[in-house]
Structure formats: structure tokens, C-alpha cells
Amino acid sequence: MTLLLQYTLLYASVLILVALGGCFSERSGVINLGLEGIMVMGALGGALTMKYMAGLPGIVIVLTTILISALFGLIYSLLLAVACINFKADQTIVGTALNLLGTALATVIVKAVNTAANPDDVSSNVQYIAAKKSLIVNIGGFEFNWFMLLAFVLLITAYVLLYKTRFGLRLMACGEHPQAADSVGINVYKMRYAGVMISGVLGGLGGIVYITAGVSEWKFENGVAGFGFLALAVMIFGQWKPLRIALAALLFGMFRALSNVYSGFDFLTALNIPSTVYNMMPYIISLLVLTFTSKNSKAPKAEGIPYDKGQR
């Protein structure tokens, strides 16, 4: 049971981070379908940091990993921002390209790193078992992970940022009615950049949390297995509101956690369901949830529409 709770919280942390990322981007008016790719890049930065920092004091490792993952995500998200905000590119095409590019680029980089270290190693795996220990504090069998705290803190921050600050008000105005925002002197392009970049930071963080959640090495050829899209489903289910997103993330996180720990439950093993079914579960659930929540969605009105100053 503890294990289920632990994994639920971990996967919920991932989903909270990434879904909030999606939320900030969409609230500013840019649909970020590239979260998956951003996660991969964040994971790459974090994993390499952890690999090479093993042995240093735990706190240093944790903070550096967070920083580098966020930075990787941020830089990568700029590709989306430039294309969609400055060049008014189709957000779906660019997002999809970023997902494919993320996996390809990460694989190429990891393989290059691996082959450079050992010419016989042509795998795309990165190991971070040593450094992973510093992420975890064992509290009576429950492995508390610093990333859980990170997700919680960022959730609160996101809520305050959106609803209590000038920045949040302006950001939301750009996603709802950019012409109105422009007419009162708000720079829509800048705000959209901010939204996308925040989604890069959060997506990058989500990436490293995801790959360190269950395992201690990651095969980058596999990307992040649609988790970025699960986060988008969480965001839609959460109706673009941070607190509802958090609740949705807990629900989805539990289903994802089940596939890791179902063998620990006697009644679940007794059902004799193949493990593949548990693997499919989060995708099926999200499809069902989307079916029943998308009809009356409260999506930001101007999302997906490139803003053109000339067209008013």
C-alpha cells in the first residue's frame, strides 16, 4: 500500500508539473503539443547531470539536476516559441516535430556520449543509480522523493502566479483575447514567450522526475512513452485550473502507479490480468476521461491562433 502511495505521488508529481506547463502555455494562447519532447530534453539534461555528479553531496546533486533539467526544457521550448509566435507556424505541426526531434536528438546525443566513453557501447541508456539515492529520504518504508516537494511548491506558486499577480492577469488576457491585451499596451508576443518558456521549465522538470520515478537507468530511444500527452489529458480534465489539475493528476498518477506495483496486491494478481493491460490502463482511462470532459471544455478562447498585430 505504501508503495502504491509512493508511486502515485511520484507520477502525480510528474503530471502536475507537465500539465501545469501545458496550462501556462495554453493560458498564454499557445497550444504546446511538444511537451513530450520537452520532457525528453529535460530528462536528458537531468540524467546526464546525475550520471556525472554521482558522489557529490546530495543537496548539490538535487539542486543541479533540477536546474539543468529546467534549463534544457526552457531552451528546447524556445524552438516552439520562435516558430509559433514569431513565424506563426502551425502549432500542431511544430509540436509534433518537437516530440519526434526530442527523442531523436536525445538518442543521438546519448549514443554519442556512450560511444565516446566506450566504443563498443552503442546503447541509448543513461545510468544514474548512484545519484538517485540523494533524491530519496526513507521515512519508515515510504521513500519520500524531493521531487514531490518540488511539485507541491510549484503547484502553489503556479496558483498564486496565475490568480494573484499582474503577470497572471496579463498572461490569461493574452490567451483569451490577445487583441484586448494589445489594446491596453500588453506585449502579447512577450507574454506568449513567457507562457511557453514556463511550460519548458515545468516540462523539463517533469521529464527528469518521470524517468527517475521507477527505474535507475533510462533508454532514451523510447522517449517518454506518451506521458506528455497524458499530462495534456490531465490539463484538459483539470479545465486549465491548477488545483483541479492537481486532483486530476493524483487520479491519473494512481493508474500509472498500478502498473508498477499491481503485483504487490494479492487480489490484483489473483485476477491474472497480463501486465500489458496495466500498461495500457492510463491511456485508456485518459481517452475515456477526455470523452466525457472535452465537450464543455473551458479552453482559453484564443489558444492555437497565432497572434498577428496587423489583423485586429
Binding site: L33, T92, G95, T96, A225, G226, F229, L232, A233, I236, M280, Y283, I284, S286, L287, L290
Partner: peptide, 10 residues
């Protein structure tokens, strides 16, 4: 796009 991705994995 989202339903497509989900169905891909399923």
C-alpha cells in the same frame, strides 16, 4: 492529436 496518441499506445 491527443486521442490519436492514446490510441497509438493502446
Amino acid at each position: 492529436v491527443i486521442s490519436g496518441i492514446m490510441l497509438n499506445w493502446i
